[in-house]
Design a protein around this nucleic acid. Sequence first.
DNA 1: ACAAAAACTTTACGCGCGTAAAGTTTTTGT
DNA 2: ACAAAAACTTTACGCGCGTAAAGTTTTTGT
Lengths: 343, 343
Amino acid sequence: MSENKIRNMEEFAALSGISRPTVSKYFNNPDSVRASTRARIEAALEEHDYRPNIYAVNQNRRLTKNIGIVVPYLADPFFAEIARKIELRCIEAGLSPILFSSHGEKDLEVDILDSLRSMKPAGVLLAPLGRISDRGVIEKFCRDVPTILFDSNLDGIGEAFVGSDNFSFVSQSVEYLTRSGNPPVLFEMLRPANPNANKRRKAYMSMMERLGFEPRIFQAEGDGWGFEEIGFKEGLRFLDQKPAQTDTVLCSNDRLAIGFLSACFERGIQVGRGESCTMRVAAHDDHPFSRFTCPSLTTVAHDYDQVSNKVIEMLFQLIESGGHFESRSEHLYPAKLVLRSSA
Amino acid sequence: MSENKIRNMEEFAALSGISRPTVSKYFNNPDSVRASTRARIEAALEEHDYRPNIYAVNQNRRLTKNIGIVVPYLADPFFAEIARKIELRCIEAGLSPILFSSHGEKDLEVDILDSLRSMKPAGVLLAPLGRISDRGVIEKFCRDVPTILFDSNLDGIGEAFVGSDNFSFVSQSVEYLTRSGNPPVLFEMLRPANPNANKRRKAYMSMMERLGFEPRIFQAEGDGWGFEEIGFKEGLRFLDQKPAQTDTVLCSNDRLAIGFLSACFERGIQVGRGESCTMRVAAHDDHPFSRFTCPSLTTVAHDYDQVSNKVIEMLFQLIESGGHFESRSEHLYPAKLVLRSSA
DNA sequence: ACAAAAACTTTACGCGCGTAAAGTTTTTGT
DNA sequence: ACAAAAACTTTACGCGCGTAAAGTTTTTGT
């Protein structure tokens, strides 16, 4: 590796003995040049380490190879995990993923879409905030930029939606809980940050009806993304109700359940299937920490791999189709019951 | 907002009635033009929504306004949290933060630095992987790109280091535990992913010596960033040792403790200060979930705000100094003991 | 061995901006 | 009100690349 720095493609082309337009062609697609010239260019690349100026490249391309990935709240390990999977797949495919988090704030989501728009990305994978999203802004964005929604759906927006099937989550948890004990009360947020929560409530209602039980819902107060805190505080309020409503609680998601379990512990209530236990708790999502709660949490798991694979597959299809699909499709993946100790 | 799209700054300048060089000046620094012309430009901006092409802008600037933020493992909520704070501060200051996660992989860290180098960032905030980092690559990167290290230090690399004082963590936890009960055994990883762990071990040794107790260390097997799993599995191994070593355990970090508490629960061991409890557990970091473990975890907290503020302050100083400091400085912030129920 | 096809070179222009230089207008300070 | 300073306009060039067009060399297939 010689130390003389190369300023631009012109200089590099001269050193490699290949003309600049051909070198340019190579960087756009190494397979588009003859094997012998490719070898010469790569030999020169070994010697001199040169990389095309990404800004000059992107200025002249209609679309870049950038992929915007937007999640609503990165401090939630669930999103960190799925973002990680998607990122790695993009890198493998020679694309440049750029990760953004809306941090639970509507304005920040708008700002992110704004700067994404000026980045001319080949595609955007957007998990919207949901209930509090500025629907108009997102709709307009999706008309300008090829976008696939994931995790939470906004009807009719984006080229496609990929996510888990909320009915599948709830049907499995309700079915299991009713089969193995008393029917569950649903513990959820009064004003959920995420539209999946609404779908889960509806699924709970319909499942309970189908099984011939009366649905009962406890709605926790509190806003924002501090679900554990809400689950804890409102869990205490729930537990302190007299008379006790039930011995079986189904939390809308694992993060609420983590707080709820903490409230049970605080009140000295033993949770689980054992004889000495007076409460059963289950939830949905299979959060990375659910294996380590006390007791470990019985939950229903997303199929991370299926969802992230499908997101990537749809993204590639979208890019090949020139950024637009004939019709919008929705892809829902079933969830898997994970039996642990809490119910 | 009229709908005719503006192609470039030339067109926008014409519409605003101001010459293009002055408009360019405005976008670089709105305060550098007369108030009256600024008003005219901003009036036109209201009407026509135009934004300079970032690629053309960045091509011509020696340095961009991009700030690279690199963390070792984003699925760890601790890093998600500190990244969030730093990101928001950059946005406030008119910079463009770009977040990367090494996902615990050496090669990915190298790739990230590689692509950051070609992005001509005004500055980079790097929390390196640590023990497994390719030290040579990072050293070379820091010579080319103005970089501030945070969270974990690499001696002599980067323009400055900002982080928490590991000795402060351990001195407070050990002091508290010895004062209120039996001296603690340190529960740590045999091959910690992070150099902070080594500093904590040394601090533990010296604190125990100073207080006149014999240091005892349990080293958990296992590699990678799945700390909870390691804490759980090796926690079981620790608890099953006969004879029992101690009733007081100090985990090197909270994520190990989350797994360890789960192991205690599994073995039916009651943890806490109460009369019926047979084990005390404490740790370090004040992980976002530590408030919701069962029992809630006594730990020592990073001063997130101080650290992230200082990181940002040093970044701004670095940019003003033209990317280089006269001498490398290290800034360590003391931690704060957080008493909860586990010890 | 030959023609056709493919891949290359040479030349040239354009992308959308930063920015320098020279000249003009507006503002500032007394 | 006046000169000096500041801010502007006009003109022009450069950044590092993509890419088109015309001409040349190399490869391919028979």
